[in-house]
Amino acid sequence: MIVLSWNCRGLGNPRAVPVLRELIRTHTPDIIFLFETLVHAQKLEDIRTKIGYEGCFAVNRDWRSGGIGVFWRRSSTCSLLSFSNNHVDMEILDSAIGGWRLTGFYGIPERHRRRESWNLLRTISTASTLPWCIIGDFNDLLHLEDKQGLVEHPEWLFKGFRDAVNDCALQEISMQGYTFTCSRRRGKPNAVEERLDRAFGNFEWMVLFPDAQLSNLVADISDHSPLLLKTTQPEVFIKQRKFRFENKWLREPHFQELVQHSWDVGSGHDLLPRLEMCADLLSTWGKQRFVAFKQSINQYKQKLKQLRNYSNPESVEEYDATRKNMIDLLVQEEDHWRQRAKTF
C-alpha cells in the first residue's frame, strides 16, 4: 500500500493538477489525501476523472479555507468510517492481512483552537481497535528541533501535542529526506521552516508493517511538502504495449527524416514488414524522447532537493528559476495527456 498526503494549498491553482499527476506517475499511490483543497466536492470529482482513480470522497471547504479530498484506486479496498472538517477516517480492507485503519488529519491552524485538534485526535483513537495509521498536516510541532526560524514556538503547544500523541498511544514513523515539511518566506530574514506534516501508527499497526517507509517529496506549488508512506515494496509489472502513433511527434524536428530513413531501410520488403519496421523504430525513438523529458523533470526535482538546504540569495533565486522550469515542463506534460485522452 502506498499513501500520498499533501497540503496542496488550493486545487484551483491551474498548476496543481499537473503537479499532482506527476506525483501519481512517479510514485503510483493507492490512496491520496489532499488538505486545504479550497474547493467543493464537484471539483474533486472532476479531478478524480482526470487522474483515473475509482473512488473519491470530499469534505467541502469551510468558506474560504480548509477542504479535504481523498482518492483511492480500487473502491473495494476502502470503507469510510467517519469524517469532519479536519479528518477522514477509513478502514482498509486487505484479504491477506485483514483490516486496518487509515486516517487523514488536518490540524486546526488557529492556536487558540489547538486543543480542539488534540481532543479530536483522542476521540478518533478510541473509535476502533483496528491497527491504526494517521497521516497529514497536524499544524503542530513535537520538539524544539522541528522548527527553524526567528519566531519562537510556545512550550504549551509542544506539550499539548505531545500529550495528545501519548494519550493515543501513537509512535511516529521516521521520515527519510529533508527534515522540514513546511517552508515560508525562503531567502528572507524572517524565513521559517517547520515539520508540520507527519505520520504515526499505533503499536498494532507498527507490528503489522515493521518496514513502513515515510519520504519527504518535492512539489513546489505549495509551501508544504508531500509525504509518501509505503507499507510494503510495490510489485513491478511489465506490460506489453501496442504501437500508437503520437500526434506530438509531428512537431518534433527531423521526424520526417526519421520516417524516410526507416522506410528506406525496409526497401525490398513487402508493405506490412516495412510498416512494422517503421513502427518499431518510431516506438524506440518515442521512448527515448519520453525518457529525456522525464529525465529533465527528475533533474529539476533533484536540484530543488539540493537547493532547499540553502537560504542565501543566489540559491533562492536559482531555486525559484528551477521550480518555474519544472512546473513549465509539468504543464507541457499535462497538455500531452489531455490530448491523448481527447479532453480538449
Rank of each mutant, 00 (worst) to 15 (best):
Q306N: 11
A219V: 04
K305C: 15
S296W: 08
D30H: 06
L208D: 05
N325R: 13
A341P: 01
C56G: 04
E45V: 10
V331C: 10
R15M: 08
C8D: 06
R15T: 05
L217K: 04
Q339E: 15
L271G: 01
R15K: 13
I297W: 08
F71L: 08
R244Y: 10
A164W: 04
Q240N: 07
I173Y: 01
G67V: 07
V165K: 06
K342W: 02
L120W: 02
Q176P: 01
I97H: 10
T129V: 09
H153K: 02
R198W: 04
E54K: 10
L330Q: 15
S262G: 04
G67N: 07
E314N: 11
C182L: 02
I68D: 09
D30Q: 12
K188P: 04
V236W: 06
S82P: 08
Q302I: 07
R101L: 04
I134T: 15
I135S: 05
I124D: 08
N60L: 03
S311F: 07
L258T: 15
L144R: 10
L271Q: 03
M326K: 11
E334F: 03
W337M: 12
W156A: 04
S65H: 06
D94P: 00
F245Q: 04
E172Y: 05
L34S: 10
F209R: 05
D328N: 15
K324A: 13
P253D: 05
F71K: 04
D140K: 10
E155C: 06
Q302N: 14
E252S: 11
P210A: 13
S283L: 09
M1C: 08
N85E: 14
L150T: 14
C168L: 11
S262L: 15
G104T: 09
Q306F: 09
G187P: 11
P189V: 04
S262Q: 09
I47G: 03
Q256I: 01
I92D: 01
L228R: 07
W6P: 01
S125Q: 15
V39D: 12
T284C: 13
R338D: 13
V207K: 14
K230R: 14
T26M: 08
V151K: 12
E194W: 00
E22S: 12
K242P: 02
N190P: 02
V265M: 06
P253Q: 01
R274S: 05
L208F: 05
G67F: 03
Q256D: 10
